[in-house]
């Protein structure tokens, strides 16, 4: 028989991050995701759950993939969708974030999906708006739906989270994907190791309850999941590491390194992939890679999150 989920009642209008969620709440989102994943297998992939609601994708920091995923999720829930990117918004004319959001609320936007370069921007709006605010990435702080879909994919493939050794590789310091993953993996009982250059993976992270290593070859044989982060080499990072080829030499998941992995170890990546940099092209398409499953699961996770946060009455 179905497991009763009635001990858990979802009562958050916003999803701002995973740090403040309990393990039960995270489990509940994952279970709700099961239901919405099924919708993707129907002939008509649409349910009326958010019919009549308006969702605004407010992407101050641009992103096509995440935005498309949220848009599709909203459309499958029968919501109306509006996409706003910063270039088109009045933010460039000096309007404050708060005023822009209040204007959207005055247009009866029920759900605001926000991606912003400033950590804390979703918090800022959520406390001021009646609309639901969903964090699609705020600075280097959190990207909760990405971590949830990572979690869901791991659980789907390995049956559980607790006790697994999850290794996250790359630029952790500036990564919101890493932080959200760290929070929810630890809460659900996984063992987490961070790997990368010491300038991008400082020891300070150990205080969060994870292990830090700068030698990827030592860590890979013991990994159940390897989550590779995209490495960026923007202007700001030049002081942190000397370049892409050095990074690949020291930390890239090359064909050679992939041989160190256990046969059932999952290879994950939030995308977009830099083929040949953080991951070898063949490995990205190989049998252990679940990168495309992540994308499919991302849609289901976002439907679940929009349903839960957007479905609560705000009266």
């Amino acid at each position: 028989m179905d497991r009763e989920m009635t001990n858990m009642r979802w009562n958050r209008k916003d999803l701002l991050g995973l740090r403040e969620l309990s393990a039960d709440e995270i489990d509940f989102i994952l279970e709700t995701t099961d239901a919405f994943k099924e919708v993707g297998t129907r002939e008509i992939k649409k349910v009326p759950a958010l019919r009549g609601k308006t969702l605004v994708n407010f992407f101050v920091e641009p992103s096509t993939r995440t935005r498309t995923s949220f848009e599709l999720a909203a459309l499958r829930l029968s919501a109306d969708v509006i996409n706003i990117s910063v270039a088109a918004s009045s933010l460039t004319k000096g309007e404050t974030l708060k005023d822009t959001a209040k204007n959207l609320e005055a247009l009866h936007a029920d759900i605001l999906v926000l991606r912003h370069g400033s950590a804390g921007a979703p918090q800022f709006l959520a406390s001021r708006l009646k609309s639901s605010v969903i964090n699609a990435g705020d600075g280097a702080h959190e990207h909760p739906t990405q971590a949830l879909l990572d979690l869901y994919t791991i659980r789907e493939k390995r049956g559980k989270i607790a006790g697994l050794h999850v290794v996250i590789v790359g630029d952790i310091l500036f990564s919101r994907v890493a932080r959200s993953n760290i929070f929810c993996l630890l809460k659900l009982g996984a063992r987490v190791t961070l790997v990368g250059p010491s300038t991008l993976v400082p020891r300070e992270f150990e205080k969060l309850g994870v292990t830090v290593s700068h030698r990827i070859d030592d860590i890979l044989p013991d990994a159940d999941v390897v989550n590779l982060l995209r490495i960026q080499h923007e202007r700001q990072r030049k002081e942190y590491f000397p370049g892409i080829s050095e990074y690949t030499r020291l930390f890239g998941l090359t064909k050679e390194r992939a041989k160190l992995l256990k046969p059932d170890c999952l290879i994950m990546h939030p995308g977009p992939i830099n083929r040949g940099v953080e991951i070898d092209s063949e490995i990205a398409d190989g049998a252990q890679s679940v990168i495309l499953d992540q994308v499919t699961n991302g849609l289901a996770v976002r439907m679940a999150v929009l349903y839960l946060c957007g479905g609560i009455s705000t009266t």
Partner: peptide, 8 residues
């Protein structure tokens, strides 16, 4: 005020 639980 309470969201119904969804199942597959």
């Amino acid at each position: 005020t309470e969201l119904p639980v969804v199942r597959a």
